[in-house]
Design a binder for these strands. Structure first.
Length: 235
DNA sequence: CTGGGGACGGGGCCC
DNA sequence: TGGGCCCCGTCCCCA
């Protein structure tokens, strides 16, 4: 699976973009001080939060926001009222929660119970409209949806990112800023993760160790390559 | 082929 | 609840 499968590529080349090919008009518009401080991400909130962006699995979310005169569980109430009017209904005297079977003598009691407890628990699953992923909270889902909508767009090259700080890191590739430096060799890096990987090169005992031959590697990928090359097969 | 750098992604945590 | 940040990880490229 390609690393950047979720990132909108605004250029055809599979390699690094040729920034020299950026049209001169655009380049003129970009102030050299534009990215002195990180730009504000362009985030279409309406897209993030629109009802089409996500679809909670349980359909009873409407009950959460009702505080006025309208009944919070009108459909359920209608059914229960119908049962009440049915002389043959054996449940006419009791209001039982369909989720936990707890019974209440009044409909309002049941409605309150469902609002506070069972519905809240059942609602704990939010599925993404763009893929099959599910999340326990709306916030987590919103964060995930950003990986589809990519609201943070680089003003220099047009590349889009899911989060502002990813864009910040990308902008460093334009500015050349490298705020993370190695305490051992003073080599600077634009990305903290890359510095962390670099620090491994200064260590005699690397972080990732082959279980078969005990050889250590600075990166997981190098260990995987080592294992795939046949070390573990020989053992 | 191996090791390392560069660029980037996602989830989780904290404020 | 949202943004910032951290950590872990992947993939590509190059010496």
């Amino acid at each position: 699976m390609p690393r950047s499968f979720l990132v909108k590529k605004h250029f055809n080349s599979s390699k690094k973009p040729n920034y020299g090919e950026l049209d001169s008009h655009t380049a003129v518009l970009i102030s050299p001080f534009l990215y002195e401080r990180y730009p504000v991400a362009v985030i279409p909130q309406s897209d993030l939060l629109s009802s089409v962006a996500y679809s909670p699995i349980t359909s009873d979310t409407s009950s959460k926001d009702h505080s006025g005169s309208e009944s919070p569980v009108s459909d359920e109430e209608e059914r229960l009222q119908a049962k009440l009017c049915d002389p043959h209904s054996i449940e006419a005297e009791k209001f039982q929660c369909s989720l936990c079977s707890k019974s209440y003598s009044t409909f309002s009691g049941l409605a309150k119970h469902k609002q506070l407890h069972c519905d809240a628990q059942a609602r704990k699953s939010f599925s993404c409209k763009y893929c099959d992923k599910e999340y326990v909270s709306l916030g987590a889902l919103k964060m995930h949806i950003r990986t589809h909508t990519l609201p943070c767009v680089c003003k220099i090259c047009g590349k889009a990112f899911s989060r502002p700080w990813l864009l910040q890191g990308h902008i460093r590739t334009h500015t050349g800023e490298k705020p993370f430096s190695c305490p051992h060799c003073n080599r600077a890096f634009a990305d903290r993760s890359n510095l962390r990987a670099h620090l491994q090169t200064h260590s005699d005992v690397k972080k990732y160790q082959c279980k078969s031959c005990s050889k250590t590697f600075s990166r997981m990928s190098l260990l995987h390559k080592h294992e795939e090359s046949g070390c573990c097969i020989a053992h």
